[in-house]
C-alpha cells in the first residue's frame, strides 16, 4: 500500500509539473470548453421563447450536469489512451511495462492522479457555467461522491480496454476523436429505469448523475447497488482485457513498435 501511495504522489507531482510547464495549452483547452458552454447556453436560451420556464430551467440544469459528466468521462477515457500514447512519445512506455507493480496498475494510478487535475478544471468551468446561465445548482457532496465513484470505475474499465487495444493496434489512438461521439451517445441512451441498454458501459452511471441532480429521480438503495455492481464488472473486465492485450503484445514482440 505504501508503494502505491508513493507512486500516486509521484504521478500527482509530475502531473502538476507538466501542467505548469504547458499551462498555456491547458488554459486554451479550458477556454475552448468555456466557449462551447457559452454557445450551448445561447442555443438553449433561444429555445426559451418556445417552452415554459420549467422546461428551460430543467434543460439548463441538465446541460450543466451533462457537461460535468462529459468532462469526467471524456477526460477519463482519453486519459488512459493518451497516457499510453504520451508514454510512447515521451519515452517511458517500456519502463512502465517492466515496472514491478504491473503496467495496468500504473495506468490506474495515473488515471486517479490525473483526475485531480481534471477536477481542478471542473472546479473552474462549472461555477463559471452556473454564473453565465444564472442557474445555480446546489450539490449534495455525499450524493455526488456516491455517484461519482461508479462513474470513475466504469470509465476506467472502458479506458483500460481501449488502452490495452492501443498496445496492439497502434493506429487506434488516431481515432480517439470519434470516441467523443460514442460517449455522447452512451450518455443520452435511455438507461433508466433499468433496461437492456443499462448494461452498456457508462450509460446508467451518467444517466443516474443527471437525473438525481436535476431532481427527476431519487437515489435509491437498489440503484446504488446496481451502479456499483455494473461499474465493478466493467472495471474488472477492463483489467482482464488489458492484461490479455498486454500478454498478446509481449508474445508477438510488438510492444516496442511505433
Amino acid at each position: 500500500m505504501k508503494r502505491i501511495i508513493t507512486v500516486f504522489l509521484n504521478e500527482l507531482k509530475y502531473s502538476f509539473i507538466i501542467l505548469n510547464r504547458y499551462r498555456i495549452n491547458w488554459m486554451f483547452g479550458l477556454s475552448n470548453l468555456f466557449l462551447s458552454v457559452l454557445f450551448l447556453n445561447l442555443g438553449i436560451k433561444s429555445f426559451g421563447n418556445y417552452v415554459t420556464e420549467n422546461v428551460l430551467d430543467l434543460k439548463l440544469t441538465q446541460m450543466i450536469i451533462g457537461l460535468f459528466v462529459f468532462i469526467v468521462i471524456a477526460e477519463g477515457l482519453n486519459n488512459i489512451i493518451s497516457k499510453i500514447t504520451e508514454a510512447k512519445q515521451s519515452g517511458v512506455l517500456e519502463q512502465i511495462i517492466v515496472n514491478p507493480l504491473g503496467s495496468k496498475y500504473i495506468f490506474v494510478i495515473k488515471f486517479f492522479a490525473d483526475f485531480v487535475i481534471v477536477f481542478i478544471s471542473i472546479a473552474i468551468i462549472i461555477p463559471l457555467t452556473m454564473i453565465i446561465t444564472s442557474k445555480i445548482i446546489s450539490f449534495n457532496i455525499y450524493k455526488l461522491i456516491i455517484l461519482l465513484i461508479p462513474l470513475l470505475f466504469c470509465t476506467l474499465g472502458v479506458g483500460l480496454i481501449l488502452g490495452g487495444a492501443t498496445l496492439v493496434f497502434k493506429k487506434l489512438q488516431s481515432a480517439t476523436h470519434l470516441m467523443q461521439f460514442l460517449i455522447l451517445t452512451l450518455m443520452v441512451i435511455p438507461s433508466y429505469p433499468i433496461n437492456p441498454y443499462s448494461f452498456l458501459p457508462i450509460t446508467v452511471e451518467s444517466m443516474a448523475i443527471n437525473k438525481v441532480f436535476s431532481s427527476q429521480i431519487s437515489l435509491s438503495f437498489d440503484l446504488v447497488v446496481f451502479l456499483y455492481a455494473h461499474s465493478l464488472a466493467y472495471f474488472i473486465l477492463g483489467l482482464l482485457v488489458y492484461s490479455k492485450f498486454e500478454d498478446y503484445a509481449k508474445t508477438k514482440g510488438i510492444l516496442g513498435h511505433y
Binding site: K2, R3, I4, T6, V7, L9, N10, E11, K13, Y14, I17, I18, R21, Q89, S90, G91, V92, L93, E94, Q95, I96, N99, P100, L101, I106, G256
Partner: peptide, 25 residues
Amino acid sequence: FEGIRSINWALTPLENMEYLSGLRG
C-alpha cells in the same frame, strides 16, 4: 532500452531520476 526509450523528454535530468524511481515506488 535502445534509442533513449528510457527517459521522459518533457522532464529535466533531475526530475527524470526522481520520477522514474518514484514510478517503481
